[in-house]
């Protein structure tokens, strides 16, 4: 009777299979990239004037959100969530803009940038310490620190203002040599390459996935679960500080009131980018592509003279729709 039992095909290791398994493992991101290509084509079609400079504009406006999405992705992969990212961005951005106004000078600005990044680390460390030590659910902790950071931002800058060093602005505006190479995109790639790639290859990176995937198994495998969770928030704070700096760089000022949609869009992008909210699955590239897609959809609606508010509707519907379909596929698969 054992002969009647079904068997699973054993995966073979041929190159075609390897490509196949790469495609399968990254199907979501690849699909998203394909969608982005279609969307870019459509953008050109909808707005023949959409040229290389527009590409630069898109890249500049996307940068802070993309970094916010990367920050969110790190903590979500580790099984947590950070609702305070937008006010971390507001706070770091305000500190940077205020200091750069008070202490002008291109060289000083380098020191200020480093200081602000350190502050980002501290903010993340506070979030992480609270989550680990109080055992309060991460949503509640980061919801509370959202208020706290926003309060500090208002203390630093009661009203929007400040300044940004020229080199900082120069980093995100315009193209690099050739027009079709937006500096903001290059910066994003460089930052991600410097932060994420070494991280994801390191044992810390593995530990992040491990505690998100199965905390008990991770603990039993000798992963220091609490320390890793703490570090996830620290990294998120660090990247969020970059996002705050990019806000200052692209607007030239600091705005104390956090943009309300940033947190929402960072979570949306993370999820659309193939990161599981349950943790353990995904990377940062998917979320970045998702941010660009979400932004382009809004831009396209503007070009097509659709009320831009439908852009919000579209973003929300895409978010819900894609997830519903994804969840349906998953349910089917687990049932089969």
């Amino acid at each position: 009777m054992s002969a009647t039992t079904a068997t699973i095909e054993q995966p073979r290791g041929g190159p075609a299979d390897r490509i196949g398994s790469f495609a399968r493992d990254n199907a979501w991101t690849l699909g998203l990239l394909g969608f982005l290509a279609v969307l870019l084509g459509f953008t050109k079609f909808a707005n023949p004037n959409y040229g290389l400079d527009s590409l630069q504009g898109t890249a500049t406006s996307v940068l802070p959100l993309a970094l916010a999405a990367v920050a969110q992705a790190v903590v979500v992969i580790s099984g947590g969530i950070d609702l305070s990212i937008s006010s971390q961005m507001a706070l770091t951005s305000c500190i940077a803009a205020t200091l750069m106004k008070g202490y002008p000078g291109e060289g000083v600005a380098v020191g200020i940038v480093i200081l602000v990044l350190l502050i980002g680390v501290v903010l993340g460390a506070v979030n992480g310490a609270l989550v680990v030590l109080t055992k309060v659910p991460d949503i509640v902790v980061t919801l509370s620190t959202f208020f706290i950071w926003a309060g500090f931002a208002l203390l630093v800058r009661p009203a929007p203002g400040g300044a940004a060093a020229d080199w900082l602005k120069g980093l995100v505006v315009g193209g690099l040599g050739i027009d079709w190479l937006p500096k903001a995109a290059i910066l994003l790639i460089v930052l991600v390459a410097l932060i994420w790639i070494p991280l994801s290859r390191s044992r810390l990176g593995l530990s992040l996935y491990a505690i998100g995937s199965n905390p008990l198994a991770a603990f039993r495998s000798g992963v220091a679960v609490n320390r890793t969770k703490f570090l996830a928030y620290v990294i998120t704070g660090f990247v969020a500080a970059f996002a705050g700096l990019s806000l200052t760089a692209s607007t030239g000022i600091g705005t104390p009131v956090p943009e309300p949609t940033y947190v929402l869009i960072s979570i949306a992008a993370v999820v659309l980018g193939g990161v599981s909210l349950a943790g353990g699955i995904g990377g940062v590239f998917g979320p970045i592509v998702a941010v660009v897609v979400l932004q382009l959809i809004r831009d396209d609606m503007t070009f097509m003279h659709v009320d831009p508010n439908y852009g919000l509707v579209a973003q929300g519907l895409i978010l819900i729709g894609v997830l519903m379909v994804g969840s349906l596929i998953q349910q089917r698969r687990s049932r089969a």
Partner: peptide, 14 residues
């Protein structure tokens, strides 16, 4: 979290 967030965006847009 995601559903209500997305729904919030939709409602806000409308």
């Amino acid at each position: 979290l995601i559903v209500t967030l997305g729904m919030g965006l939709v409602v806000f847009g409308f």
